[in-house]
Design a protein around this nucleic acid. Structure first.
Length: 331
DNA sequence: GGTAGACCTGGACGC
DNA sequence: GCGTCCAGGTCTACC
């Protein structure tokens, strides 16, 4: 039996894999796979010379039976700040190892300054004790944009299905690259990936990314204003105000709220707001405005807290049941 | 600038 | 098993 490369990935002192990986719905999307028993995840990454499946763990943090890692009472398992162990299914050279690390750092936001998280806790201390502050995202901006488009105008199970099909049909197991998606016929995306009317928009987006028309560095630069990025995003095919605001947070710009029907549900059920759909949506925006540049995280962790109050801790959600079945209007 | 309706899919429901 | 209805954000035509 051949063994692959094993890498060690340092992470910030506050980083806790079980809590911080299972902090955003994309952790349930293919090719990601969270294992609730071993409290580690696997995913498939694309490298210049092929794909690699990696399994990522943080110390020994098994939760069901057997030898267990220290588990804080009523908290997520694991030891914050412990380095991550990345096991690959094949041997990688140095350049490939660096590429794997870079993708995981982006996905887990390990490069996000701990000061930013502390700043968030200062503005909204409700999450300090539990340590919530970091949000999981994709290994690339392209993935984040495509996933956002597949989450628009559908219930969550359809988003899960579209991502599974995109990986299986176009990506060969991994999430499709912009180059691959660009070369895919819109009719194939519609018929085999069930993306519906999003077919042409996805190909156009892939073309923009593959051709270098998207200036990601500019969008992440502190020199570029939020408004400028937002305006550029809504120019993209398939991206409206909701999707743009969501991509903003995925870029690390947390000042905008992606307001949708879920925001309205939250406003009514959790915040006790009344009025029409439009009125509640506006009030939710106003409610979180005082959190300023941290507004999205305050909003999102309230939502996530509500989901966990109904479905249990996210690091124990079974991807085959909870992860696929739950939709906001059923909670 | 604001609004109505089309765009698609999958799930729920009734028969 | 089939038909109907509904949820969901973006886009376009129209006022």
């Amino acid at each position: 039996m051949t063994t692959g490369s094993s890498l060690r990935l340092a992470c910030p002192a506050d980083y806790l894999l079980s809590r911080d990986f299972c902090s955003y719905g994309y952790f349930l999307l293919a090719p990601n796979r969270w294992d609730t028993e071993s409290q580690r995840f696997s995913t498939v990454l694309t490298l210049p010379d092929g794909v690699v499946t990696v399994t990522v763990s943080q110390g020994a943090s098994r939760v069901a039976g057997g030898r267990s890692a220290p588990r804080r009472r009523s908290g997520p398992p694991g030891v914050p700040g412990a380095p991550l162990r990345v096991v690959c299914d094949r041997t990688l050279d140095r350049a490939e190892q660096a590429a794997v690390k870079a993708q995981l750092v982006r996905m887990l936001r390990l490069d996000e300054d701990a000061k930013t998280v502390r700043g968030f806790h200062k503005v909204d201390p409700r999450w300090k004790k539990f340590g919530r502050g970091r949000l999981m995202r994709s290994t690339s901006l392209f993935q984040d944009v495509v996933r956002t488009v597949t989450s628009c105008n559908v219930t969550w199970p359809s988003t899960v299905h579209m991502n599974e099909r995109l990986c299986a049909v176009v990506g060969g197991g991994a999430f499709p690259t912009a180059k691959k998606l660009k070369r895919t016929r819109a009719s194939t995306l519609r018929a085999r990936c069930r993306v519906g009317y999003r077919d042409k928009r996805l190909v156009q987006l892939a073309d923009l990314f593959a051709s270098g028309a998207i200036d990601e560095d500019r969008w992440t630069s502190p020199e570029t204003s939020d408004d400028e990025v937002f305006k550029a995003l809504v120019e993209l095919p398939g991206i409206g105000p909701y999707a743009a605001a969501n991509i903003m947070q995925l870029l690390g710009r947390y000042g905008h709220l992606p307001l949708d029907t879920e925001s309205v549900r939250h406003g009514r059920v959790v915040l006790g707001m009344e009025g029409t759909h439009a009125e509640v949506m506006r009030r939710v925006g106003e409610h979180f405005a005082p959190f300023g540049e941290h507004a999205f995280r305050s909003y999102w962790f309230e939502l996530w807290d509500f989901y966990e109050s109904r479905r249990g801790p996210s690091w124990l959600w079974d991807p085959e049941t909870t992860g696929k079945s739950f939709t906001a209007n059923q909670l």
